[in-house]
Design a protein around this nucleic acid. Structure first.
Length: 602
RNA sequence: CGGGGCGUGGCGCAGCCUGGCUAGCGCGUCUGGUUUGGGACCAGAAGGUCGAAGGUUCGAAUCCUUUCGCCCCGACCA
């Protein structure tokens, strides 16, 4: 391709509004153009990168035995009502009415395709002999994000690979899951991404049933906890906190004292009032677990983790029944249970007898402060078990940077990350709702057991840029680069230079190399700046100086120094270099030392 | 949905507080010339409903009201 024949609108200045590197660089490199908040046009360069990522995903899915199909973005709303997901998705679901003669057809634009694929399978698979099978597609998804942001990282329309496995047994599901997991590792490796696989909330199947693939990056929206010593990694929702021995500090227990704290109902206000740290306060949260009030005690500077609270309720109840609904109690309930308005609840002297679940940190607290269960008052000198006795103690809070690792004696570090993939054992939620059943070898009818597996293709692209750029622009690995080789004739009007450039271009193209020739008649500096900006891995400069010696100058984007190769046979040599790098990605990876250290950074 | 910020040629901005000649500047674009290995120089040119609507005023980019859009922080995120 010739530069002047395509559309690469590079920009010297950063457009207003773009802040993170991937957004800034995609705009400046002429890869994308915004149409509205959360929707972008992919310009030729961006489109090529997206297609390369898509191809890698497709190749690895095919290699893993998944079968490609294509489902429509549009589907009837009734289908989503049957699984309860019109309500579950809420405003995120994009809905519209098609006007047909004499009626309106309510339609949703798919945010994902469990319903559609499950219905398809329910009509076409009825025997254990037809399974296992994994179906996938790579299509646009629609989610009305309440707040699209960060350029291409969070948009309302995005390209997603979604795969669904259909299995006759939990063991079979495990095998499908492992295959997808392994395929994901290959995909992200090939894309040159350094990633972490983290444990995530597992849902109905339980156990080791959900993993997220995360790229550690400063601008990531997700928080993950990672132990560098043993490799344990989990998202913040899921991360467990290890227990450590501790000793009660040898401090005199102060008497319980009621202190007036008029109007102070938040942790911040109370700690300001009592001149103590949030960590010295006990936060008392009243939840409704399937309608029954419970009190949850968390240290003032910690955040409650609802997943952990759910599990604590279960173990306390001693039943296998799941908690369907866990929600913060409304003010009326709080007043009824504690006898005080919202903001003054405490574990000592609640009006109604309520089960108290304490976080493990609570027992270590000495002379703490807590709500007095009376308006405008708090208690100080609160000590357990002298003043109150929790019904049970559990890990109930979100893990934080520096918390003990649950698997070894080291500590967890908190990292920001971009989620690029998710594998999940779904179970029978959709197959039951949509009657996707099969007959087993004993002629018994069962719901099909499903798994689902997603990859955000746009996020691969943006994520790579986030971790692979410098002050001059993007640094692509060969696998994702819009073009693998950029030919830069220094002086376009010079016939000899252009002839050599064109010849090289044609030969590389014929050899199957993605090659771009910058045939713009402008100063060399402009072309070099743009070359660095768009980040093509291998740059070939053709200048009059070099031509006299029969040499070309070549430079990998990530290297400082350029090298020289002979003009004779240059096409063959360059093609060989590109093919080697395609196969191994070693040169790129070798230059990614800063990212390795990023993965392991504290 | 709360909090904050911004809308002025394609891009980045100044002007607004304190209303007043023909709305400026840099980059880009086009023409001609001189240049030509890391974002050249000279001369000329095109390109604007100052986001939109309403109001105040002799007069509004500027003041007031409403509204639309975009960005950031928070809440939310199968």
């Amino acid at each position: 391709m010739y530069w002047t024949k395509t559309l690469i609108p590079t920009m010297k200045e950063t457009p207003e509004g773009a802040e993170i590197p991937s957004h800034v660089l995609m705009l400046r490199a002429g890869m994308i153009s915004q149409v509205m908040a959360g929707a972008y046009t992919y310009l030729p360069l961006g489109h090529r990168v997206l297609k390369k990522a898509e191809r890698i995903v497709r190749e690895e899915m095919d290699a893993a035995g998944a079968i490609e199909l294509a489902m429509p973005a549009m589907s009837p709303r009734g289908l989503w009502e049957r699984t309860g997901r019109v309500e579950a998705f809420g405003d995120v679901l994009v809905q519209l009415n098609l006007h047909r003669p004499g009626r309106k057809v309510p339609v949703v634009l798919g945010p994902t395709h469990e319903e559609i694929v499950t219905e398809l399978v329910s009509r076409n698979i009825s025997s254990y002999r037809q399974m296992p099978i994994t179906l996938y597609q790579i299509t646009s998804k629609f989610r009305n994000e309440e707040r699209p942001r960060f350029g291409v990282l969070r948009t309302s329309e995005f390209l997603m690979k979604d795969a669904y496995s259909f299995n006759p047994s939990v063991e079979s599901l495990g095998e499908s899951y492992e295959r997808m997991y392994a395929a994901y590792c290959k995909i992200f490796d090939r894309c040159g991404l350094d990633y972490l696989v983290v444990e995530a909330e597992s849902g109905p199947i339980g156990g080791d049933a959900s993993h997220e693939f995360m790229i550690p990056a400063e601008n990531g929206e997700d928080a993950v906890l990672h132990c560098r010593a043993c490799g344990y990694a989990a998202n913040q929702e899921k991360a467990e906190i290890g227990s450590r021995d501790w000793t009660t500090p040898d401090v005199e227990l102060k008497p319980l004292e009621k202190v007036a704290t008029p109007g102070a109902s938040t942790i911040e206000q109370v700690s300001g009032f009592l001149k103590c740290k949030p960590a010295e306060l006990i936060k008392t949260l009243i939840y409704l677990a399937d309608g029954k009030p419970i009190a949850v005690l968390i240290r003032g500077d910690h955040d409650a983790n609802e997943g952990k609270i759910r599990r604590a309720c279960l173990s306390a109840a001693g039943t296998a029944a799941s908690i369907n609904k866990l929600e913060l109690a409304p003010p009326e309930v709080i007043e009824k249970v504690t006898g005080a308005p919202v903001g003054f609840a405490g574990p000592v002297g609640m009006k109604e007898k309520t089960p108290i679940f304490a976080d493990l940190e609570i027992q270590k607290m000495v002379n703490a402060a807590a709500g007095a269960n009376a308006a405008d008052a708090h208690l100080t000198g609160v000590n357990s078990p002298r003043d109150f006795r929790p019904d049970s103690s559990h890990d109930l809070r979100n893990a934080l940077d520096g918390d003990p690792c649950p698997r070894c004696s080291s500590n967890l570090s908190l990292r920001q990350a971009i989620e690029v993939g998710h594998v999940f054992k779904l179970g029978t939620k959709y197959s039951e709702a949509l009657a996707a059943r099969f007959l087993d070898a004993d002629e018994k009818l069962h719901p099909i057991i499903m798994g689902c597996y997603g990859i955000g293709v746009n996020r691969i692209v943006a994520g790579l840029i986030e971790i692979s750029h410098d002050g001059d622009g993007i640094i692509w690995p060969v696998s994702l680069a819009p073009y693998e080789v950029l030919i830069v004739p220094v002086k376009v009007p010079d016939e000899e230079s252009m002839a050599a450039a064109e010849r090289l271009h044609d030969r590389l193209a014929a050899a199957g190399i993605d090659v771009l020739l910058d045939d713009r008649d402008c100063r060399a500096g402009v072309k070099f700046k743009d070359a660095d900006l768009i980040g093509v891995p291998l740059r070939v400069v053709i200048g009059q100086r070099g031509l006299k010696e029969g040499k070309l100058e070549i430079k990998w984007r990530w290297e400082k120094e350029s090298g020289k190769i002979a003009l004779d046979g240059a096409a063959d040599q360059l093609a060989k270099m590109v093919r080697e790098e395609r196969a191994t990605g070693e040169r790129f990876r070798g230059r990614q030392q800063h990212n390795k250290s990023l993965l392991n950074a504290v």
